[in-house]
Simulated scan of single mutants.
Amino acid sequence: MKSSSNINITSILKLRSTYLLVSHGSRDPRPQLGLENLSQLLSQKLPDSFSAVATATLELGPAPLHEQISNFGEHTLSLGLTELQILPVFLLPGVHVADDIPTEVEIAQKTFGSKLKIEVRPHLGTQAAGLTNLLKTQMQAVAFLPNLLSPKWILLSHGSRRPGGNSTVEEIASQLSAETAYWSVKPSLSEQIDNLVRGGQQQIGIVPYFLFNGGITDAIAKNVDQLQQQFPTAELHLANPLGASVELADLIHNLIQK
């Protein structure tokens, strides 16, 4: 767990809660760096530029998530605050959001009893409209060669096997006039590109529905290079993942209870 704070008494009195951004966790350091940058951006939106904001991971962290929450809970109480809000930085409502995080929070809550209220806020993926706008920005940064045909886009997500777990992806893809593809379930990226090429599409953009660069986005880039060789008549372009930004911090700030 890492925190960012510039403590002063006036700011503490204006705060109701501390905030813990929870991500999946990765052996690759880049997602954690992106999460920490995001926590810094979020902290700037709280009273007097003060915040009690920290990051934690569900997996591959320094301790089980409930211990990370408990440690930050002790920090929360030391600030004279009695509320801790968990902000799940997840794009899909899969098992981690629905089951794993609430279970870890329940374990941590038992440590504090009535001294500290720990509340889980909606996950980041519920901010579909804002995420759609951010993805449009990533798409606009891609430069295609002049062509009479407009490019076709594929929104590539990790994907969820949970019933209804991909509904947000489908909703966003519809707003972007894009096809959907998934890294872990069907339809795959290669299947969707094949369908588009067979339909005469010459320019295809792929926008990753992922937060930060990491091992999976590296694998996606390698896969796109391979697919470019497989489909030489098509022009394939890969956009960047969302990345830490003021706009993404705004969406997380929307999750905070007013």
Score class of each variant (00 low, 15 high):
L145P: 03
N166W: 05
L149Y: 07
I172Y: 00
E179Q: 12
G200T: 09
M139Q: 15
M139C: 10
A141R: 12
P187W: 10
L148T: 10
S160H: 05
E171I: 13
S157V: 08
V197R: 01
L155F: 11
W153R: 03
G199P: 06
I204V: 06
Q201P: 03
L145D: 12
K152E: 15
R198M: 09
I154N: 00
Q202R: 09
F144G: 04
L189Q: 04
Q201F: 08
S188L: 06
L149H: 10
A173P: 03
L145A: 13
S160T: 09
T180S: 12
L189M: 14
S157F: 04
K152T: 15
S190N: 10
K186S: 15
A178V: 13
V185M: 10
V169Q: 00
Y182V: 02
I172L: 06
W153A: 03
Q203N: 10
G159V: 01
V169N: 01
N195A: 14
L176F: 04
A173Y: 02
E170Q: 14
V169K: 01
S167L: 08
H158Q: 09
F144R: 06
P151V: 07
G199T: 07
I154W: 07
S174G: 13
K186N: 14
G199S: 13
S167M: 10
K186E: 13
N195L: 11
S190K: 07
A143V: 13
S174L: 13
L189N: 00
I172W: 02
T180V: 15
E179D: 10
G200K: 11
S160F: 03
D194F: 08
Q192H: 07
L155V: 06
Q175V: 05
